[in-house]
Simulated assay, not measured.
Amino acid sequence: MSVNTKSSDRLTQVVQGDGYDVVIERSSRRKTAALKIDGGLVTLVAPRQLPIERIEQLVADKHRWIIEKLAHAALAKPASSNQFVSGEAYPYLGRNYRLKVLTGDLIAPKLVNGRITVTVPAPKQQPHYIRRLLQSWYKRNADRKIREKVRRYRKLVGVETGVVRIKDFKSRWGSCTPYGDLEFNWVIVMAPNRVVDYVVVHELCHLLHHDHSTQFWKEVERVMPDYKEHREWLKQRGHGLVV
């Protein structure tokens, strides 16, 4: 199988396989490369300094596995009703932003003039690329915004925090450990800003009370008197936060 670099920019590269493309995401936090397939999109998360030649070889070595997984993905039900076309609205911190899809070399999404702009080689044939790129955009922004909120609210709660991670959770908005490590579902940044604040405060208060006791909720209310409003928003509308 021949594997060629198709296009690249500072954040993302695309490697062309035999009948499919592989989106390469570089991360300074990765020590090893990992392949994953989501919604028909093949992604390889690689250490920032890993040579492209090594990545190409990894893709070639996993060719059969990739083909099998893509076949299963083709039979799977789509996770979202979005069509990933220009004009669709995507929420971020309570405000809707219209998607603008451009044709060209693959470029990571950017928020420009009130629109989320994404560029892919063939938009009509590659909605799974657009979806994956949007998810990456949300994750990067979630990492930045949630860390800012943790720094602000930990002083109000009066706790010290450990590592802050942004993760994929199926049924949770966040979690914490007795060591002060906090994990948050990246999807939460699609919710209104104050709802995101509530989730951050909720997890920080768990560093004081590791249950949902009366003392825990009193602490949440001390920091955020209107928390019940935001908790109810999540119960009623949180299931609709999906890319």
Results as ranks from 00 to 15, higher is better:
His209Arg: 10
Trp186Gln: 02
Asp211His: 12
Val159Ser: 13
Glu219Asn: 14
Val223Glu: 03
Tyr198Leu: 05
Lys155Met: 06
Cys205Glu: 06
Trp186Lys: 03
Val220Gln: 05
Val200Pro: 08
Glu219Val: 10
Pro192Leu: 03
Arg152Glu: 11
Val195Thr: 09
Leu207Gln: 04
His230Thr: 01
Lys170Phe: 06
Val195Arg: 02
Asp197Gly: 06
Val199Tyr: 10
Arg131Asn: 10
Lys170Met: 08
Gln135Leu: 13
Glu183Met: 15
Val200Trp: 02
Asp181Leu: 13
Trp186Ser: 00
His210Phe: 15
Trp186Asp: 01
Glu148Ala: 11
Lys149Leu: 14
Gln215Pro: 03
Leu204Ile: 02
Pro192Asp: 01
Arg140Glu: 13
Tyr227His: 13
Val196Ala: 02
Ile166Phe: 12
Trp137Thr: 11
His210Cys: 09
Ser213His: 08
Gln125Cys: 07
Gly162Trp: 12
Phe169Asp: 06
Val164Glu: 12
Arg132Asn: 09
His230Trp: 14
Asp211Val: 08
Asp143Ala: 14
Asp226Leu: 10
Val223Gln: 04
Glu232Gln: 15
Lys167Ile: 14
Ile188Lys: 01
Gly162Met: 10
Tyr179Gly: 11
Lys155Asp: 10
Gln215Phe: 06
Asp168Lys: 07
Asn193Trp: 01
Phe169Pro: 06
Val196Asp: 04
Arg154Thr: 07
Asp143Ile: 00
Trp233Met: 10
Arg152Tyr: 12
Gln215Lys: 14
Val201Gly: 03
